[in-house]
Design a protein around this nucleic acid. Structure first.
Lengths: 222, 222
DNA sequence: ATATATTTTTAGATTAGTCTAAAATTTACT
DNA sequence: AGTAAATTTTAGACTAATCTAAAAATATAT
C-alpha cells in the first residue's frame, strides 16, 4: 500500500521524468513537493526500499516500473475527477486542480472504473492532458504547441501545457477557450510572438511564452 | 481546520450521542474508532482544547455546538457521496460505505454544494438515513421501525437502521428492497416476530431483531 | 463500607513525515 | 588540478496519532 504522501512524491517524480531522460534531482523534487531537500532524501530512501524508485545517494532518482504504474494510476484518478468536476458539476477548468489533488488519493479500483464509464471513457481532462487507461497506457493525442504552427495554418485549441490559475484566467480573458478555432496570421521573426485570429471575430497578439503553453490540433483540410 | 482523524472522532461521538442524553464514555468511542482507550483520552483532550467537545476527565465527553456542526458536515458529505455512488455510478447499497468513508473527508464547500445540486438535493441516502442540509439541519423524515407497525397496516420500506453488509445482503435475499410494499399479516405475541407480505407475491417471516432495523413509512389511505 | 472489578488516565515509546543545522559529496570555475 | 559553490545527506528534534503497561479514579457487590 502506498500512502497519500508517497503517492504525491511518485506523481511529482513522474512529471519531472517526462521532461528529461536523466535522473531527477533531490532539489527538483523538493521544489514541487513544497518540502526541504532533507525530507526528500528521507522519502527517497523509503520509496527505494519499497522498490518504487531506483535511487543511489547523490545520484538522483528514477521511477521503477512499479513506481511508474502507481504514478500513472494517481494521474488517471486526478484527471478523471477533473473531468467529473467540470463536465458534471459545472466547475470552471481553473477551479478544479486543488479538489482533484484530494480526490486522486481515494482508493478503490471499482470506483475509478465506474467513474471512467460514467464519464464516457474520456481521452483527456479539461486541460487537454491525456488520461491513462486502466492498464496505465497514456493515449497519444498528437497535440502540438501553438508555437510550432506555421503561418496560415488552421488549428483548434485542445488544451494547455501549464495549469496556473493565472495563465488559465489570462486565456479566458483574451477569449482563447477550449475548442476555439485559431488561424496564425503572422509570426514575428524577432521574438517568435504571434498574431492570431480566434474564431471569426478577434485578432489578437500572443507572446511566444504563451504560445508554447497552448496545445492545438491541426484542422484536416478536405 | 480539522484533520481526517479528528473528523472521524467527532462523527463517532455524534452517532453515539444520538442514542443517549448522557455523556459518551471513552471506551464506547474506542470501540467504534477501533483504537485503544488511551488513544481516545489523548484525542479528547485535543478536541477539548479546540472547543469541539466538552470533556472532563473520567466524566465522558459531549459535542459542543461547534463540534456538532463539524460532525454534521462530515455526515452530510458521507451521505451525499453514497447517493452519488449508488444513483450515478450504479453501486449496490451494500458496497458504498467504505468508499464514502474516504470521500467524506474531501474539503471543499463548493464541491459539496454542487454535488448536492447535481444529485437533486436528496433528502436521504441509499440506506434511508437523512442528509443534513448546508446549514447542518437534519430533515425529519418520520420513518418508523417495522417493529412498531400494527397488524394489517400497509407500509413502504424506506431504509435501514443498521448498515452491516451481512444484514443488507440478508434483506436482498428475502426480497426486502428499498421501496417494497409491506403488509403485516401477523405478529407473534411471544417473541414479536412477524409474518409479512412483500409486494403481491411473497409471504415471509421476520424476527423482531430484523424488524427493528427496517425503516418504513405508512401508506396514506385515501 | 470496604474490597474487587472496571474504566480511564498517565507515562513513556513508536511510526510517518517533516524541519534545521552541520557534514559530506558533487559540480563548476579558473 | 584545486578551490569555491552548490547540492545532497546525516544527525537530531518536532508533531500527530497511535500503542503498552502501570497508576488512578470510579463503579459494583457483597
Amino acid at each position: 500500500m502506498t500512502s497519500f504522501t508517497e503517492e504525491n512524491y511518485l506523481k511529482i517524480i513522474y512529471k519531472l521524468s517526462a521532461e528529461t531522460d536523466n535522473e531527477i534531482s533531490t532539489n527538483a523534487v523538493a521544489e514541487l513537493t513544497q518540502t526541504k531537500a532533507a525530507s526528500v532524501t528521507d522519502m527517497l530512501r523509503k520509496l527505494s526500499e519499497k522498490q518504487l524508485v531506483s535511487y543511489q545517494k547523490y545520484q538522483g532518482v528514477r521511477l521503477t516500473e512499479k513506481g511508474e504504474k502507481v504514478a500513472l494510476m494517481v494521474i488517471r484518478k486526478h484527471r478523471l475527477w477533473e473531468v467529473f468536476l467540470v463536465n458534471k458539476l459545472g466547475f470552471n477548468w481553473d477551479e478544479v486542480h486543488e479538489i482533484a489533488e484530494e480526490l486522486e488519493h481515494i482508493n478503490s479500483d471499482e470506483l475509478v472504473q465506474r467513474l471512467d464509464e460514467f464519464l464516457g471513457f474520456p481521452q483527456c481532462d479539461p486541460h487537454g492532458d491525456p488520461i491513462p487507461n486502466r492498464h496505465g497506457l497514456m493515449p497519444e493525442l498528437g497535440y502540438k504547441n501553438l508555437s510550432e504552427i506555421t503561418v496560415n495554418q488552421q488549428v483548434v485549441m485542445m488544451g494547455v501545457a501549464q495549469h496556473s490559475t493565472n495563465f488559465l484566467q489570462y486565456l479566458a480573458k483574451i477569449g482563447l477557450n477550449l475548442g476555439a478555432k485559431i488561424k496564425i496570421i503572422e509570426i514575428n521573426d524577432f521574438d517568435k510572438s504571434l498574431t492570431i485570429k480566434i474564431g471569426v471575430k478577434k485578432e489578437c497578439f500572443l507572446s511566444n511564452e504563451v504560445a508554447k503553453n497552448v496545445l492545438v490540433k491541426a484542422i484536416k483540410m478536405d
